[in-house]
């Protein structure tokens, strides 16, 4: 109706900057998908209850369905399309393929973005609900149980959970070795 229901925003997505005029109601998820044609990010529930729309916002994993596009104005967004720079798969992506960490593939972009964010959280020493020794002096070991808890915001109805956990753990070990 009036102009103040729309906003001009700037989004930096996967290292490219986009200027957009958006309906304030538009979510970051819909802006990525419909305005920027970055359809790798999926809409599984649109209410923050499944994790399929997970992206990295200024490096943190968030659900893009509950993030308004206008709120992300000026932010740096990484989507599944931005993970494989220059066409080269990241180890986590490669591990998902090799270990069959998906079936229908619909939750996969969210699982992978979530895993990338989660590994960074873990590297920063963040505890989880299953961290037994939660004293701040220690970084919890990334066990299967830790990965499962930290990834629980990403539902997978095909039941690829065990191979997703394996792919994440294998990647984290490899990255730790390569450091």
């Amino acid at each position: 109706m009036t102009d103040d229901t729309r906003s001009d925003i700037s989004l930096r997505v996967n290292d490219a900057t986009y200027q957009l005029a958006v309906d304030n109601r538009r979510t970051l998820l819909d802006a990525l998908r419909d305005d920027l044609s970055l359809t790798g990010t999926k809409k599984g529930c649109d209410h923050g209850q499944c994790g399929a729309c997970t992206v990295l916002l200024d490096g943190d994993r968030v659900v893009s369905c509950l993030t308004l596009a206008v709120v992300a104005d000026g932010a740096d967004v990484t989507t599944i399309e931005g993970l494989a720079g220059g066409g080269e798969l990241r180890p986590i992506q490669e591990a998902f393929i090799r270990l069959d960490g998906f079936q229908c593939g619909f939750c996969t972009p969210g699982q992978i973005c979530s895993a990338v964010g989660m590994l960074a959280e873990h590297a920063a020493g963040w505890p989880s609900a299953v961290t037994r020794d939660d004293s701040p002096e220690r970084t919890p070991e990334l066990s299967e149980e830790e990965v499962r808890e930290r990834m629980s915001g990403n539902l997978c109805r095909c039941g690829a959970y065990p191979s997703i956990v394996r792919a994440i753990l294998e990647t984290s070990v490899r990255e730790a070795v390569s450091k």
Binding site: R33, T39, G40, K43, Q93, F96, F102, G105, F106
Partner: peptide, 21 residues
């Protein structure tokens, strides 16, 4: 053998119905 469409699915390039413009 891994899924032939694996690369599409881990890069977000597999086109599901709502992804087709």
């Amino acid at each position: 053998r891994p899924r032939v469409e694996g690369r599409l699915k881990v890069t977000g390039s597999a086109a599901y119905v709502a992804d087709v413009p």
